[in-house]
């Protein structure tokens, strides 16, 4: 693999491509805003400027070096867990225990950083899963115990365990990917998951007629889902051979895995929001909502792609 300042050359080209796409999108949104002043495209403008911040932060941190990238990904987990814990009903007695939930983040990302797969894969689903309810039981409050155990365990799985698969992919993908290294795999996953969100949104806006889940999310249509996944598969087949060891056919299959998993993650967080009666999970990203609104698809796509790729391509 050719390197440019220590970064795989193909990763640099794809990143440049992302910025080119973002620039084109920004120009289009600015033109729309200019033609139709007022509130109609204000949301889209806010959304676009948030994209600049997110893509800027992600590419800077991930391309800088592996340690910075892992700290950045751990910080995303932290923001997501904090947002989740702030949304759900909680018991006062559990306040101190929630600090342990936060402490799981540096540990989990440490296992990923040291490429310790055995510990990485059991720490949250086994050790945190067993340890947390026991600690809560020892404190002696049984009122709403089951609700507290259920919500906290699920939140840890989703925001810490599932999202940390991005860090594990970055570290452990170095060896099985001679084409563009771990960073190539991570870029492939995140780019496609986010692109899939945008593609589903665009197809849904253009052609959307038939609801997939009217009870959960009235904006999700079959047209958006199929059009979005098809576009994602197309992009995956195009860039997969440059970022991963997969040929175009395997890349297309990976694109389908990411697209469908991303959709499932999206509606799962939508169901949580519906249950809690909130529209957005937070206000961190103007135009998008909270961090969970942005990484919802990755909570499913990251583990799904990681285990798909690990099963077929790890030595």
């Amino acid at each position: 693999m050719t390197l440019i300042h220590g970064i795989p050359a193909n990763v640099v080209y794809v990143t440049a491509g992302i910025y080119a796409l973002l620039l084109i999108a920004t120009v289009i949104v600015a033109l729309l805003r200019w033609r139709h002043p007022g509130e109609r495209y204000a949301e889209l403008t806010r959304r676009t400027s948030s994209w600049w911040w997110m893509i800027g932060a992600f590419t800077l941190c991930v391309l800088f070096n592996q340690t910075v990238a892992i700290v950045f990904l751990a910080f995303i987990s932290y923001l997501a867990l904090k947002e989740y814990l702030s949304l759900i009903p909680t018991r006062r007695i559990d306040r101190e225990l929630l600090l342990f939930a936060y402490l799981a983040i540096p540990l989990q990302y440490y296992w990923a950083a040291s490429d310790w797969y055995g510990m990485f894969i059991v720490f949250v689903p086994v050790w945190m899963f067993l340890f947390f309810p026991a600690l809560m039981a020892l404190r002696g409050e049984t009122q709403n115990f089951l609700r507290a155990v259920g919500t906290i365990s699920w939140g840890l799985m989703l925001t810490v365990f599932a999202l940390s698969h991005m860090a594990m992919l970055l570290v452990s993908g170095e060896v099985p990917n001679p084409v563009a290294g771990g960073v190539g795999l991570l870029l492939f996953l995140v780019l496609l998951a986010q692109f899939n969100d945008v593609a589903q949104y665009c197809w849904g806006k253009l052609l959307g007629r038939h609801n997939v889940t009217p009870q959960v999310s009235p904006n999700k249509t079959w047209e958006g889902l199929i059009g979005g996944v098809a576009t994602t598969v197309l992009l995956a087949a195009l860039i997969g051979p440059y970022l991963t060891p997969m040929d175009w056919l395997w890349s297309a299959l990976a694109g389908a895995v990411i697209g469908v998993a991303g959709f499932l993650g999206d509606i799962t967080i939508s169901a949580v929001k519906r249950d809690l009666g909130v529209k957005d999970t937070g206000g961190l990203l103007p135009g998008h909502g909270g961090i969970l609104d942005r990484v919802d698809s990755l909570t499913y796509a990251a583990p799904a792609f990681f285990h798909f790729f690990r099963y077929f391509f790890y030595p």
Partner: peptide, 19 residues
């Protein structure tokens, strides 16, 4: 809302919540 969860009266332990 939320600051009383993060650092309530009588506690020295800071537990982050979105406010």
């Amino acid at each position: 809302h939320g600051l009383g969860k993060t650092l309530p009266r009588g506690s020295m332990l800071f537990v982050p919540f979105n406010c």
